[in-house]
């Protein structure tokens, strides 16, 4: 790790003032589980770390039936999982958080950090940049080993996958982010927060270098909603899922009134699938309908060479998430 200076502000205004307006000079330290690894690998080289864990207003978690769930950005995954209202109303979020099978990561890692963590692409982590290109500009992902890379949204030049564990579930629930910066507070739909970078100068999310995510706001669960997250993972021990799918279905009697289907680990962003959603809306969820939605979800998927199997996994994850949501009801 390179040397840096360390500040620990107690208000978000101080934090923002301490952050640089240029990427790379400063970094926000929350749980540290990703940032310190990036620094040890010399992928990021901040000259100042701004610890935001001492900022009281970024903490806390609350729920009301009228306004929904408010999660402070520095709430840890453990705190999230300890909250009874989260269990009661947001099973897909619980299942997603439980997928982080390390208690150490759960007690360190924050919800804000989970959303802002950087991709695990092995070329990115080896210093070839977010777009993983060599000096001649060719994509190492396309020519190299892309077994864990994107199958959707992979028209290029970005081929990494978004690693967030919670984002698919939060997006399925229609979560918004509250962001604070030099120009004050703004809100963004979580779904719009993530973006596919077109150049090395861009980040994979809509955040200025001197902005911080302060809160995650999840709408109250509509009557008749069922939801679930299904992960395809190789190991039970701490492991990145190969594919995840979160679904939230709102029923009107036997039929689906509205549906959200969001895949994780398949694209440079958490990947909402309007195709899958369309396949569900207006229908009773039979096995055939779940399968049709699953097929629709990967309709536009394409292999980069070594990751064709992920198309199959995505299909299965979507179908099983739907079945789990329907079968498991709103309980976990």
């Amino acid at each position: 790790m390179r040397a840096f200076e360390y500040v620990s502000p107690t208000t978000k205004e101080q934090a923002v003032a301490l952050l640089s307006s240029t990427w790379g000079e400063t970094e926000i330290l929350a749980g540290g589980t990703d940032l310190l690894a990036l620094m040890k690998d010399d992928v990021v080289r901040p000259r100042r770390l701004v610890n935001i864990k001492e900022i009281a207003e970024l903490r806390g978690i609350s729920f009301s039936a009228s306004t929904g769930l408010r999660i402070g950005a520095t709430v840890t995954l453990s705190e999230l999982l300890d909250h009874p209202d989260v269990w009661r109303h947001y099973p897909a979020l619980v299942q997603a958080a439980r997928g982080v099978t390390s208690p150490q990561i759960r007690s360190m890692g924050t919800v804000g950090g989970d959303l802002c963590q950087r991709p695990r692409c092995w070329y990115f982590r080896s210093g070839f940049g977010l777009l993983a290109r060599d000096q001649t500009g060719r994509s190492l992902v396309l020519e190299g080993d892309n077994r864990y890379h994107a199958i959707l949204g992979n028209e290029g030049p970005a081929y990494f996958v978004n690693p967030s564990s919670l984002a698919p579930a939060l997006i399925a629930y229609g979560a918004r982010l509250r962001i604070f910066g030099p120009r004050g507070t703004r809100e963004v739909l979580l779904e719009r927060f993530f973006r596919i970078p077109k150049s090395e100068a861009e980040r994979e999310y809509d955040l200025q270098p001197n902005e911080i995510v302060t809160e995650i706001l999840v709408p109250p669960p509509p009557v008749g909603m069922v939801s679930a997250t299904y992960e395809v993972r190789q190991r039970e021990v701490l492991d990145w899922p190969l594919v995840t799918a979160s679904v939230a279905l709102v029923f009107d009697g036997q039929r689906v009134r509205s549906a959200r289907v969001v895949l994780g680990q398949v694209a440079p962003i958490p990947w909402p699938s309007p195709e899958a959603e369309r396949a569900l809306v207006g229908k009773a969820v039979t096995e055939e309908v779940a399968q049709a939605a699953a097929d629709a979800a990967v309709q536009r998927a394409r292999s980069l060479g070594k990751n064709e199997y992920k198309i199959q996994l995505a299909r299965v994850a979507v179908r099983r998430a739907i079945q789990q949501a329907v079968g498991g009801g709103t309980r976990r």
């Binding site: 099978t101 695990r120 092995w122 080896s126 060599d134 190492l140 020519e143 190299g144 080993d145 864990y148 190789q234 190991r235 039970e236 021990v237 701490l238 492991d239 990145w240």
Partner: peptide, 23 residues
């Protein structure tokens, strides 16, 4: 091993996967 860079792509314990207690 990466055919392009010739490097080991998973020289860490995240993607060099060992079985855990529940596996």
């Amino acid at each position: 091993m990466d055919p392009v860079t010739g490097r080991m792509l998973n020289p860490n314990m995240e993607f060099y996967k060992l079985a855990g207690l529940a596996d």
